[in-house]
Design a protein around this nucleic acid. Structure first.
Lengths: 166, 166
DNA sequence: TATTGTTATACTCTATAACTATA
DNA sequence: TATAGTTATAGAGTATAACAATA
């Protein structure tokens, strides 16, 4: 029951941190499973679903897609090929630079993307059990984890007592 | 500035929930990037690193590995083959059932696994900015998300004011 | 007959390198 | 010459189906 004192200078993580990291690992795993499953229900691979979601926001040059996917540009060719082969995406020339091709969702692609977005509502299932207060708190903690320097829900946590009505 | 009223009966997620889901997505993405990168530093793929981590706890029948990875057993053959080819893992016969083969880490595999575990310390980097109180809170919220029905840090959030000394 | 692990096959994603057409 | 996209190639993960050894 020793309190695992943080060894000075050592990179050792304390027990609490290790626990949180493991929980994050579990959340990450579940998130991915559900994402792949939702994509599969629309006969899409994970990568295809991600590109479709990206393009449903705005048309993008192939190069930009690669940057978003953090993969080599050559790989995007095949992924977009397959989406295009199914009529979900199309390639357009860029008006500004004749070297670039813009990938854009078709109307069918837009619909598929919308249905996909619904079916991958990690929202309800995992978050349903949390109150508004807890979700607000979780948002804050995740923002801080990501270095987004967010404003705390309130100066004092008592806020939680009265925050049920957003 | 309308408050996005939850449509009755509709599965629509409110704005706060959507925000939390997107943050989770970002955390998931970063977690994966770091995991793959850490694995790559040891010339391992993500799947290989996961199997190695699994086996560093205890030897496992091939079938069990597949269950943990949520993939078909036939795929495990190749992954273990590659780990075995590098001397990180070995196959042993099961004393109980001559059909099953137990995959187990070698001494070298154990060491690689340990070094891998250190280098993928998502712990410090993302969590370093959080206080003990915040980490405790985050642990609680993640546990609730996962349906682990955890005990709250305290009945009243004021606890946070005095929780700095675990 | 059922189960374990494997092999064979096909598809997708991935990185690398070379090619083309533009700039 | 530099850049955008593509092609070619090879390695890895994945699912499916068929197989041998064992239960």
């Amino acid at each position: 029951m020793t309190s695992t004192p943080p060894a000075p200078g050592a990179p050792t993580a304390d027990a609490l941190t290790v626990e949180v990291v493991e929980l994050l690992g579990t959340v990450v795993a579940r998130y991915h499973e559900e994402y792949e499953e939702a994509a599969g229900q629309h006969s899409l691979t994970g990568a295809q679903a991600r590109v479709l979601a990206l393009l449903s926001r705005e048309p993008l040059p192939m190069r930009r897609i690669a940057q978003q996917l953090k993969c080599e540009p050559s790989n995007v060719t095949g992924i977009v090929d397959r989406l295009e082969g199914r009529g979900l995406v199309e390639r357009r020339p860029s008006p500004e630079d004749r070297r670039v091709k813009l990938a854009a969702v078709t109307e069918q692609g837009r619909q598929t993307s919308a249905r996909l977005r619904e079916s991958l509502d990690f929202a309800r299932e995992p978050l349903a059990g949390l109150t508004t207060t807890e979700r607000t708190l979780l948002r804050y903690l995740l923002q801080r984890m990501l270095g987004l320097d967010a404003a705390p829900p309130a100066e004092h946590p008592e806020y939680a007592e009265h925050a049920e009505h957003p």
